[in-house]
Design a protein around this nucleic acid. Structure first.
Lengths: 256, 256
DNA sequence: GAGTGGTCTAGACCACGAA
DNA sequence: TCGTGGTCTAGACCACTCC
């Protein structure tokens, strides 16, 4: 795991760690680019590249002539590559995971199996189903599909139900050395079937969101497929081309 | 409108235009960075900045040692700042817009009105409701909210029902000089009420998506608020931190 | 006017991919 | 091996903010 990382990535991580540790409170100013440049002993260009990532993720805001200010200690993005576990922890609540099942599935007809083709072609698949909860209240039903040939055997003990280790993204990276760097996601409205309704503690037929996500590796191959069912709302923030977080914050909820 | 733009933005536009005009077919290779550098008479750094945007938007893919290849002639992103009109045109279908109503609304109680506070504080609001269709089939019900003080009077003639001019984003920019550069979006599952069901030609109670979007100006102030109701699916692609579009393309639908 | 980010350049060396 | 993108630097000048 000790790969050499580019400087900008290291600088980014160190800055982000400082942020999440609370070294820079929300609203405070970051040092100037020049100061950070000498602190980290890299050029201003490299500092800027690290800062760009922080800006695009919604941690800090930047204004010409004024500098960088902290707007959040955790990123607001909710997509299938952001960790539900981390998000819930940062919000101050406690996430838990109930492992529902681990199944090995051999698609009868690979051509019609409703998963990305190159994943199905790997042979037997593993399906891991988990119920994610926030403060013990059901929040999300997750099915993760992987090629068995890529990760070998998995056991229930590989999927902790509490703590930071319950993050499937971390489990896949750290226990099974799976990595990815892009994804494609679809969001659809569906009606809760009886199983989803029971697990999510809602009524059958209630409208819920289905998030279907494919994660791709560097070579463009599918690394895993995941679908999530959730009753709540998904938030995307500051996704403009030239991303820049707003100075003002919303004063009231969007939905009446 | 003739503001001076940075070089990288101009290069980006010229490259994107070449793409959308079909000068570089899908699958073809772009010239090398060095070649483009001399063609556009800018440094390699500047070329890279323009290319980065094309990569992050999903137009082209890049591979070290191999070069840039074209993967799409239009961006796959579907968010409230991407033009529905353009998306439909590029897919080969014909978009139309039915203007349902233009209303002036003075919130009785600004504190409880379910819109961003700084928008409500501007005084009277304009609400523009339109039904967007694809090949005359209803696809999306859109309500756009603006501060009347920012744009003055609007007339039905300002909202063409056909052609590229029907894009509300273009209308706001070109006819009313509104600009924005960031946004925040929420997606929720709801059940279609009788009005939405009738307009979208679906059954009452069917699950649909509600997209609520706030667009922010450079100063962080809300420029407009928009909510969309749609029965279909929303797609987000290649939104990883280090964005990189996959080489392989999905072979089958995500939903069974 | 001083400070700060925004843009741009020329040049260097490295890592990966393909022939 | 060679071409290509990936990373990094020092230095310059401009535009904006704030005093």
């Amino acid at each position: 795991m000790q790969e050499t990382q580019p400087k900008y990535a290291l600088v980014y991580q160190r800055l982000r760690d400082k942020l999440t540790e609370g070294r820079f409170p929300v609203g405070s100013r970051l040092p100037t680019e020049e100061q950070m440049s000498s602190e980290f002993e890299v050029s201003r260009i490299t500092i800027r590249r690290a800062l760009e990532q922080l800006v695009s993720e919604g941690y800090v805001n930047r204004r010409q002539g004024s500098g960088y200010s902290v707007i959040a200690l955790s990123p607001p993005q909710q997509n299938c590559l952001s960790s539900f576990t981390d998000m819930v922890f940062r919000s101050g609540a406690t996430p838990t995971s109930r492992l529902l099942s681990i199944r090995e599935i051999v698609p009868a007809n690979p051509l019609t199996f409703p998963l990305p083709r190159d994943l199905v072609d790997h042979g037997p698949l593993l399906q891991i189903r988990r119920l994610r909860c926030i403060d013990d209240k059901p929040a999300m039903l997750v099915s993760t599909w992987l090629a068995k040939s890529e990760i070998g055997d998995v056991r229930p003990e590989d999927f902790p139900e509490t703590g930071t280790g319950q993050s499937i993204l971390r489990i896949l990276q750290e226990k099974f050395s799976l990595t990815w760097d892009a994804a494609c996601e679809e969001i659809s409205p569906i009606a809760a079937d009886s199983e989803a309704a029971q697990l999510l503690a809602i009524d059958v037929g209630m409208p819920i969101l289905k998030q279907a996500c494919i994660a791709f590796g560097k070579n463009g191959k599918t690394v895993f497929y995941e679908d999530l069912l959730r009753a709540g709302t998904i938030v995307f923030e500051s996704f403009a081309l030239r991303r820049q977080a707003p100075e003002s914050i919303m004063k009231r909820p969007l939905n009446d």
